[in-house]
Amino acid sequence: MIKIGITGGIGSGKSVVASLLTLSGVPVYIADKESKWLTNNSPVIREKLTALFGPAIYTSEGLDKKLLASHIFNNPEQLQQVNRIIHPEVNRHFSAWVKRQTSPLCAIESAILFESGFYKTVDTSLMVYAPKELRIKRALERDSASREEIERRINSQMSDEEKKDRSDHVIYNDNRQALIPQVGQLIECLLS
Score class of each variant (00 low, 15 high):
Glu89Val: 15
Ala145Arg: 15
Glu141Met: 15
Leu49Ser: 02
Gln80Asp: 13
Gln177Cys: 10
Leu21Glu: 03
Ser192Val: 12
Ile57Asn: 11
Ser144Phe: 11
Ala18Arg: 03
Arg147Tyr: 08
Ile108His: 03
His87Gln: 10
Thr50Met: 07
Val16Tyr: 11
Ile171Arg: 03
Gly25Arg: 07
Leu20Met: 11
Thr7Phe: 05
Glu89Met: 05
Ala107Lys: 02
Arg152Ala: 13
Thr50Val: 06
Lys33Asn: 11
Arg147Ala: 09
Glu77Pro: 05
Asn91Thr: 15
Lys65Pro: 02
Ile2Phe: 14
Arg92Val: 07
Ile136Cys: 05
Arg100Asn: 14
Asp168Gln: 11
Gly5Arg: 03
Pro55Cys: 07
Tyr119Gln: 14
Leu38Ala: 09
Ser146Tyr: 08
Pro55Gly: 08
Val170Ile: 14
Ile10Val: 14
Thr50Ala: 02
Arg176Thr: 11
Ala69Glu: 08
Gly9Ser: 15
Arg92Ile: 09
Gln78Leu: 15
Tyr58Gly: 04
Glu61Thr: 14
Pro43Arg: 04
Pro104Leu: 13
Ile154Tyr: 02
Ile10Arg: 10
Trp97Cys: 03
Ser19Lys: 14
Ile108Ser: 00
Val128Ala: 00
Leu67Asp: 04
Asn155Arg: 15
Glu149Val: 13
Phe114Cys: 02
Pro181Leu: 06
Ser103Leu: 08
Thr7Cys: 11
Pro27His: 04
Lys164Asn: 14
Leu126Phe: 05
Glu77Arg: 04
Thr102Trp: 06
Asp160Phe: 03
Pro55Asn: 14
Glu34Asn: 13
Val16Pro: 04
Ile86Ala: 07
Leu126Lys: 03
Leu113Glu: 10
Ile112Pro: 05
Arg135Tyr: 08
Leu21Lys: 07
Glu148Pro: 01
Lys3Leu: 13
Cys189His: 14
Asp174Trp: 02
Ile154Asp: 02
Ile10Glu: 06
Phe73Ile: 02
Ala178Lys: 14
Val82Lys: 01
Leu134Val: 12
Ile85Lys: 00
Leu21Thr: 06
Thr124Ser: 15
Asp174Val: 00
Glu61Pro: 04
Lys33Gly: 05
Ala96Met: 11
Leu38His: 07
Leu190Glu: 08
Asp143Val: 07
Leu38Pro: 01
Met127Val: 15
Arg46Gln: 12
Asn173Asp: 01
Asn155Trp: 09
His93Thr: 06
Ser60Pro: 06
Pro131Cys: 07
Pro76Asp: 00
Cys106Ile: 08
Glu109Pro: 06
Ala69Phe: 09
Thr39Glu: 09
Tyr58Ile: 00
